[in-house]
């Protein structure tokens, strides 16, 4: 019985080259927390696996005002990183609520994004923070803002011979305010029904910059730009918050599924945005 091939890529470039060489039959493996579930459920039979664990893609460093996070960095490493806690606490807070310790020990930030789930829990904080991705392909590399990465459920601009090599996250200014909340069926080991990340710079009592990101309420993780625009130059009073929360909910296009109805998701989106902005105002 043909058993297929298992490659240990030594670099992201080698991994991209192997992808180009083996085409659609190859799958990329990092932590395996999504891939192996699909294998065990017999959703597909892997022919070629390209393993990224030895590709030098794990680690966190600072470059100017940004953090560079290797795509194969386990979520628990990011969660525990003093650098992340200091520079991008919003990301650390969101990761802390993902899955469970054992899954965070294996699952990677790149894998979470590459699967392009509408409920990817690293996507909401990273969208709010204005993160971008370094994609490495067989023919070279490019940088893509995360806001332009997702194109649909399970779909992204990632080419057939490309992998995510690195996530670049602008550091949060010390005075920036942020809040995150995930609504799931239970606290741990739960896919988001709604997740919201809000991020505001406030100077002289007025909002000088804002981002509101929502997960699991649209075909892709979502930046509610109109809602954020309503906050610009305003003080976070009750009326402003209510208007922004309403606009954020209007930007959603949720579905009914086993975890929640579209009706619930839309209302929960509004309620959570309102709750988080009120928290920032207080």
């Amino acid at each position: 019985m043909a058993e297929g091939e298992f490659f240990r890529a030594a670099s992201p470039q080698e991994a991209a080259g192997l992808l180009a060489q083996h085409g659609g039959s190859a799958r990329v493996l990092a932590g395996g927390t999504d891939l192996m579930v699909a294998v065990n459920k017999r959703m597909f039979k892997p022919q070629v696996i390209i393993y990224l664990g030895d590709a030098g893609m794990s680690g966190i460093s600072q470059e100017g005002d940004a953090l560079l996070i290797g795509a194969a960095t386990p979520l628990s490493v990011i969660q525990a990183s003093p650098l992340v806690a200091d520079k991008t606490p919003l990301l650390a807070a969101a990761i802390k609520q993902m899955a469970s310790p054992a899954i965070r020990n294996a699952g990677t930030i790149g894998g979470n994004l590459a699967n392009a789930s509408p409920a990817a829990d690293t996507a909401t904080p990273l969208l709010a923070l204005g993160a971008s991705l370094k994609l490495v392909g067989a023919k070279g590399e490019r940088e893509v803002p995360l806001a332009e990465f997702f194109t649909g459920p399970g779909q992204s601009v990632l080419g057939a011979d490309e992998i995510i090599a690195q996530v670049k996250v602008p550091a949060q200014p010390a005075e920036a305010k942020w809040a995150y909340r995930k609504v799931g069926k239970r606290k741990a080991q739960s896919l988001s029904v709604v997740s919201v990340a809000v991020y505001c710079s406030i100077s002289g009592g007025q909002v000088s910059g804002a981002a509101i990101a929502l997960g699991a309420v649209a075909p892709t993780p979502l930046l509610a730009q109109d809602a954020a625009g309503l906050l610009q130059g305003k003080t976070l009073d009750e009326a402003t918050i209510a208007a922004a929360a309403k606009a954020a909910a209007e930007a959603t296009s949720p579905i009914d599924d086993a975890r929640g109805t579209a009706w619930y998701r839309k209302r929960a989106s509004e309620a959570v945005v309102k709750q988080l902005l009120t928290e920032l105002a207080g």
Binding site: F6, L29, G32, T33, L35, M36, V37, N40, I49, Y51, G53, S76, P101, A102, I103, N105, A106
Partner: peptide, 13 residues
């Protein structure tokens, strides 16, 4: 030393 799920850990990894 790190807690993982052996059921979704690819053996070759």
């Amino acid at each position: 030393g790190v807690l993982v799920r052996s059921c979704i850990t690819n053996a070759l990894s």
